[in-house]
Design a protein around this nucleic acid. Sequence first.
RNA 1: GCGCCCGUAGCUCAGCUGGAUAGAGCGUUUGCCUCCGGAGCAAAAGGCCGCAGGUUCGAAUCCUGCCGGGCGUACCA
Length: 526
Amino acid sequence: MYLSLHFSLYTLHRKNMYELKIKKCLEDFLGRKDLKLTVPPKGMKGDLSTNAAMVCQVDPSKVISELEKLDEVESAAKAGSGFVNIKVSDYAVNAELAEITSGTKYGRGSEKGNVVLEMVSSNPTGPLHIGHGRGAAIGDSLGRIYQWAGYNIYKEYYVNDAGRQMDLLGQSIFNRMNGKEVPENGYRGAYIDEIAASMGGCKSAGECTQKAGKMILDDHFRVLSKFDVEYDNVFSEKSLIENGDVDEIIDTLDKKGLTYKKDGALWFSSSKFGDDQDRVLIKKEGELTYFASDCAYHLDKSQRFTHLVNIWGADHHGYIPRIRAFWESMGLDRSGTMDIMIYQLVNLKRGDEKVSMSTRAGEFITLEEVIDEVGKDASRFFMLMRSPDSPLEFDMELAREESKKNPVYYVQYSHARICSVFRKAGIEFKSIDPGQAGGIGPEEREVVKVLAHFPYLVSKCAALKSPHLITEYLREVATVFHKYYDGVRVLGSGAMEKPRLILLEGVRRIIKTGLYLIGVSAPEKM
RNA sequence: GCGCCCGUAGCUCAGCUGGAUAGAGCGUUUGCCUCCGGAGCAAAAGGCCGCAGGUUCGAAUCCUGCCGGGCGUACCA
């Protein structure tokens, strides 16, 4: 298993207030901590369900009478299969809603650690494409989720601004500028000519490399900013080479007896640490490999942070064993964690028609073009609708459609609708005391139960590194709200008006927070 | 060949730290606008969870082997 350097998974699963009380009651009574408290399948009676009696092989009626002593539990009952199903009291549901609508910390975690997220890190040799967009959407959302869980987050962009690819870029542009053919394996395409034209002349290929690299990098950040992805730092590969860090790390590996010369190149014995072959650090021409500077970069990060998270496209997954081999060879797995997250690639389409992603001029769709066509919100939401492990089908036609079919609008609409109710009522929520939620009925209960799932959901996203669970959850919240709103009158409902407004505010807050965590706006009007 | 990911409804996919009758959206069929935003709601139909074994009281979930698809397998990144 390459990906074994995880954060400790499943340890930060959070419960809401009433779940915590119930869980603790079970643990104290039965003397163990591995008992489950989950939501029963659809169609089953009860709000929560536990396997405690089954696992501990005790009489369910004993568990039931213990649970029923709690204020949070209205009743509990044995199900045929050995589960105990629990009905949560109205008192607990009201208290939960009051908690959701007070303060701004509902579902926040208190994890400790300094996490560096490395994402996109595209070579500055061409425009960002849709795949980079997925990496950015996943990485940035994960950052927001980790932050919500309590970690300090630092987002870094590693630039491969040295080496052969950059030289090729410079040479390609220089040649075009002077009306010559680009070198073999060089860069082509309309964007190369555009850059050449807008640069205003260079004396040498080296100068072209410099200028073009900066132009393209600036352009990457401009597009990422349009995507609401901002970085804390840009880390230059060149700086590592120039300040001697790369030489130093090679020296260190050398002293550990982990390098050797073969065919004129210097090799790292990565196969001693699980890689399927050894890797070159210095090519026979004397050039450093990207891998060599990557080692230096990862060592540098390990000194600055407690957790490293790298977000890479599936086309880079073959790179994992060697970087992990380096990590282990330095004994770094004992002083911190490194997590490499791989996401599968994106297939663009319009309805049933596939959009070619060939890099030949004219067929290449950039990330910016996608954002401009379907909008930032829809782009980000769509990128996160699937598990990172699954290839993503991105339907541009659906993404720009403004209807219930489009999940982005469906979710955002629920937020706008609630804002509209408050506008209509002429009330600001600040003027309502959430403590007055008391007296909610069965319809409201169903909504609060879904809202109360939020703390668990967010912690699960963080633990599993799966921001896509949020998009799914938001649809669920929106569905339960639209359904509720369709059947219940809020304004002018007498004694129920206030509790119902509090409920709406609860829905609004969860939707808004959830959308924030995936980097999508929560409009008050649409 | 080897490595990683995926195979669940017509389509796109959740679920996979083992648990009750396997879920959602789209598509299809049928209803709901005197009403706080219909950019909405309700209902129906639709499944050997790729195949075969194994572990277990219990498997879509864990293990093994196949089959199918994607990606990777450089002194490119």
